[in-house]
Amino acid sequence: MSTQDLYQQVIIEHHKKPRNFRKIEPATHQAEGFNPLCGDHLWVYLNISASGLIDDISFLGDGCAISKASASMMTQSLKGKTVTEARAIFVDFHKMVTGQLNPDDDTGGSERILARLKVFSGIWKFPARVKCAALGWHTMTGALANETTISTE
């Protein structure tokens, strides 16, 4: 993957027009995440029903295109999923961005599970940027675990 591939149009587009870029009030779960290395800083909000369904998910914050696009696409992929499914997607996503899982070669169904999130599949070749792609996701899992502040350091 080249740098040009990293900055695919879909990432630039999500960066410019992030989806679900708002606060949920009141939210059943929320957390603040930051990366002290680069100053990326965002908040993730979730509304989870009694049956464990993610009725709504959103985020706010400032950061690079990678962190913003990743958080934006995360909200799209997780809306309507159960908490258990969200955790499973996170595990696959995390494996993918750290280079431990290639969704195109995987037989465990991760290609279908990750779907559009595959645009981040080559980011492990840019180690300094993996945390950018993972920030929103770490913040989301922190919110699910009722942790209020998540730092990637």
Binding site: S2, T3, Q4, L6, Y7, C38, D40, G63, C64, A65, I66, F126, A128, R129, C132
Partner: peptide, 12 residues
């Protein structure tokens, strides 16, 4: 353009 994106694009 966040400086981290700029840094990566300049690195390319």
């Amino acid at each position: 353009i966040h400086p981290h994106d700029m840094g990566t694009l300049l690195d390319a």
